[in-house]
Design a binder for these strands. Structure first.
Length: 880
DNA sequence: ATGATAGGTGGCGAGA
DNA sequence: TCTCGCCACCTAT
């Protein structure tokens, strides 16, 4: 099955077979026994004295591990080591956090030999000598061996293997051929990507990351149950590298497998954080005065969590500190005592450093899997770590914000990052092992709202009023006990709202499913890295079919590479016209790079927009729409890296003639079919499973929406799978399809097309009757759909009245049906009132005018009424 | 570093 | 003062 992470039928069944390995079973058993005994010693912090916990094993003696997050150090002595974070099951049936250290990762580099080898398995070397595979291999091996020694790589294996290459590098031949696969340990540095030799023209995979290699090779697609066949050792408390409850070491990556038994997906521990800060004017930095934490210890990730507010699941704590050398206001001690009567929910500290220590310790003790907060990645985490640095919080404390013990703080980027741009790499490094769920970023992805601040979101989504305290008001809060308690409550309320938002939007189950579908790391999906999702999907798929994938261009020095890449890969420059043109081209490109991201002219032409026949229409207008046009084109014409022949001069390629289905079309087919299947399952299932299916369907819908991203990634310059010719081919087909549809409707069906944009056309039916219009529409649709196999048009809407003003600007009264009843909705596209950069007044006035125009009243009445209202507005403005 | 291109609109400054 | 080109911003698909 394609996406093994998603289990459609009969997902929840078997519990893991509890404890003990078969005595005779595997040699792993004794090791695991010792693991277990060590773990009893090792799990120091979380278990109460006298309580001992041991891990449950599968019946074959392997250790089940629910994989959640992973991390690799990119620099330093630990690069090449992979850290997996997840959950293991304890004897009591509870779950504990676990870190698995995977050692001995091997680099994997492909050597592309010179000359053609596609002729009958013989290596045609420089067209002169024809050698056998074995002979050629030995010549090549000898040279590669020398080169490896030169690079200081002393320990390696070499194997000739058959692989295909179908991407955009002109220096690597397309199609299947024998290449030499080299593997060597990560402790040796990466080979230079441009290394060449007498017998080989290129290297691929030189800088592949250990983690990516691991996940692709082990076919791990997002959060899922894994089993560790052998666990080499288990560190006890002082020797642990992580803050997790348990820690194991895996010395052979191949001992990590996807679990074949389906087991219940464990709940996770979610901690919501909200900081209240004051601005230190002298240094222009935020200082923390209070931190609120809300913890839910059993959040479901396979279905929506509905009862998260149930007593016992939720705990809260707010830590406040004194402002400057002040003392806490009068009466605070009393409040303090009341709040802590039953449970510690309020904590007072005298310094910011003490507050931070307390908070980090709390997160550690909670054994948090997921940190949540509104704009947590853009604000709270950044402030936390900067303050930890400024207050000289010890590394064994601040590093508890993540799961890996650290001694040095990674470079944090400046605090003044753009609102909502996500966390910096340094912050993500610190939090490795705990997922970051930023409800601000997520709602921006999942919802369409005017504003994504907490206050409006709380209102529109949760129907709750949020009390806001402006940042300059915060110092005043310390003047009285009452106002200070209000500050505390505000912090807790905010933390709570953010968590509620997360549950309300089912962010965890949704993003988990998305990660499973695309094979992405959950943390990346939460960060909204859409391009990366597609990248992973393609990586998994192409690897499975034995294709060598395009190299990962490292971020560092990318700007330099940009121009270089342009020169190497650019088909524009490939024109043998003259060298001058080429140099100018690359110089222009360099300029574009230097001028930054703001200036980016389109690289190729996109969708067709028809000139609108402007005016007010009062007969029924039919809006016809091709369902996900670009993905369908890929399927319809079998467009793929593997099928389209790219021309050398950079012109738009021809449609493929190959009937062999390409990988992209197959992928889309699988996704579409999968969605259909889920839809069907939804009809026939009930109860809890239905909720799960619903999430699945939502996720699939999201992916379907993001199928567009597959096209996007083909046209996205920084994408690993950048293929301008393919993107161009797709859009050019799109234009042709739209045009031919227009021609069909106008010439053959003799109907008037008044507008069209990329994948849609509007037809003036000239009718007053709904039913007749509908009938006509279905006839048109039938005719259009007959022409295509996968492309499907649909009647998107019928407009009773419409005002068509410009390209991409129109208002219409849409007719809809619900329970057999007809009702009308106003749809407004592109006009001022749907834009955020127009004032409320102009929106209101516009709204009124349009409602008048579309009311269907006589022309004169409308004019009079609009005029009157405008006069009224004018008067009001003069007054104001 | 964080899918695409097409298109409308107001603001701004240069130049007539 | 007016026009024009450029830019930032936001939207449609």
């Amino acid at each position: 099955m394609l996406f093994s992470g998603v289990d459609l039928e009969g997902s929840v069944k078997e519990e893991p077979v509890v404890k003990k390995a078969n005595d005779s079973a595997r040699s792993a058993a004794p090791i695991l026994k010792s693991v277990r005994s060590k773990l009893n010693v090792g799990c120091d912090s979380n278990s109460k004295p006298g309580e001992s916990s041991s891990l449950l094993l599968n019946s074959d003696g392997s250790l089940p591990f629910y994989f959640i997050d992973a991390h690799e150090e990119l620099y330093g002595p630990n690069s090449g080591i992979i850290y997996l974070f997840g959950k293991v099951k304890e004897a009591g049936g509870t779950y504990g956090s676990c870190c698995a250290v995977v050692n001995n990762m091997q680099r994997c580099v492909y050597v592309i030999p010179n000359g053609s080898v596609r002729c009958k398995g013989k290596w045609d070397f420089k067209g002169r000598v024809s050698l056998t595979l074995q002979e050629m291999a030995s010549v090549l091996k000898k040279e590669v061996k020398e080169k490896l020694f030169e690079q200081g790589v002393l320990n390696f294996t070499m194997t000739p293997v058959k692989r295909s290459y179908v991407f955009e590098r002109p220096d690597i031949p397309m199609g299947e051929q024998y290449v030499l696969k080299i593997t060597y340990p990560f402790k040796y540095s990466a080979l230079p990507p441009d290394l060449k030799g007498e017998h080989f023209s290129a290297l691929l995979g030189t800088n592949c990351r250990a983690l990516e290699h691991f996940l692709i090779k082990r076919k791990i697609t997002g959060p899922s149950w894994l089993s560790f066949l052998k666990v080499a050792s288990c560190s006890s408390a002082p020797h642990k590298v992580s803050w997790c409850k348990f820690e194991v070491t895996v010395d052979d990556p191949k001992e990590v497998r996807i679990s074949k038994v389906s087991m219940q997906i464990p709940p996770v521990i979610v901690t919501s954080i909200n900081l209240k800060t004051v601005i230190n004017e002298k240094q222009n930095v935020n200082e923390i005065v209070s931190a609120s934490v809300i913890n839910c210890c059993k959040a479901k990730i396979d279905s929506p969590t509905s009862e998260w507010e149930k007593p016992g699941l939720l705990k809260h704590l707010t830590i406040v500190r004194k402002l400057e050398e002040d003392i806490f206001p009068m009466g605070f001690e009393k409040e303090f005592a009341i709040r802590n009567a039953k449970d510690i929910t309020l904590s007072q500290e005298s310094t910011e450093a003490a507050l931070l220590n307390r908070l980090f310790l709390k997160i550690y003790n909670l054994d948090t899997d997921i940190l949540v907060g509104h704009n947590i990645s853009g604000f709270d985490l950044d402030v936390l770590l900067h303050r930890a640095q400024a207050c000289q919080v010890k590394s064994h404390m601040w590093s508890k914000i993540g799961c890996l013990k650290r001694s040095a703080m990674p470079k944090l980027t400046k605090a003044d990052t753009i609102y909502g741009s996500g966390a910096s790499r340094g912050i993500m490094t610190c939090t490795a092992g705990r997922l970051i769920c930023d409800t601000y970023l997520c709602s921006r992805d999942l919802l369409k709202e005017v504003s994504y601040s907490l206050t409006p979101l709380a209102k529109t989504q949760l129907n709750k009023d949020r009390r806001e305290i402006a940042s300059h008001e915060i110092p005043k809060a310390f003047q009285s006990s009452r106002s200070l308690m209000e500050l505390v409550e505000c912090g807790e309320a905010d933390a709570r709202l953010s968590m509620e938002l997360m549950f309300h939007l089912s962010i965890l189950p949704l993003t988990r499913q998305l990660s499973n579908i695309s094979g992405n790391l959950w943390g990346k999906t939460l960060q909204g890295a859409r391009a990366q999702g597609v990248e992973n999907l393609l990586l998994h798929k192409f690897h499975a079919y034995k294709y060598i994938v395009p190299d990962n261009i490292p971020t560092r020095g990318k700007n330099l590479n940009f121009a270089k890449r342009r020169l190497i890969y650019s088909v524009d420059g490939g024109n043998v016209d003259n060298l001058n043109t080429r140099e100018i081209t690359s110089e222009n490109d360099l300029q574009q790079v230097n001028q930054g991201k703001r200036k980016k002219g389109p690289a190729y032409s996109g969708g067709l927009v028809l000139e609108p026949k402007k005016g007010l229409y009062d007969k029924y207008i039919l809006l016809l729409d091709f369902n996900s046009l670009y993905p369908s084109i890929i399927r319809e014409y079998n467009i793929c890296f593997t099928t389209v022949e790219r021309s050398a001069d950079g012109s738009v390629p021809q449609l493929p003639s190959s009937k062999m289905p390409g990988i992209l079309p197959e992928l889309l087919k699988a996704l579409v079919e999968r969605r259909e299947k889920v839809k069907e399952s939804i009809k026939t299932t009930s109860g809890l499973d239905l909720q799960q299916l619903d999430i699945l369907q939502q996720a699939l819908k999201l992916t379907a929406n993001r199928l567009f991203c597959i096209y996007g990634c083909l046209g996205y310059y920084n994408s690993r799978f950048y293929a301008k010719p393919l993107a161009e081919l797709i859009t050019s087909q799109g234009r042709e399809i739209l045009q031919s549809t227009v021609d069909l409707v106008q010439n053959d069906l003799k109907m008037e097309v008044i507008y069209g944009d990329t994948d849609s056309i509007m037809i003036n039916s000239g009718l007053d009757d709904v039913k007749k219009s509908k009938q006509i529409a279905s006839e048109v649709i039938k005719k259009v759909n007959k022409k295509y196999e996968y492309l499907v048009t649909d009647l998107d809407a019928m407009f009773k009245r419409m005002l068509l003003l410009k390209k991409k600007k129109y208002v219409a009264v849409k007719v809809q049906f619900k329970d057999g009843k007809q009702y009308e909705v106003v749809e407004c596209k592109g006009l001022e009132m749907v834009r955020r950069d127009w004032s409320l007044l102009s929106k209101e006035v516009g709204d009124f005018c349009l409602s008048q125009i579309l009311s269907g009243g006589s022309g004169e009445d409308v004019v009079v009424s609009i005029h009157n209202s405008l006069m009224k507005v004018q008067k009001e403005m003069r007054k104001g």
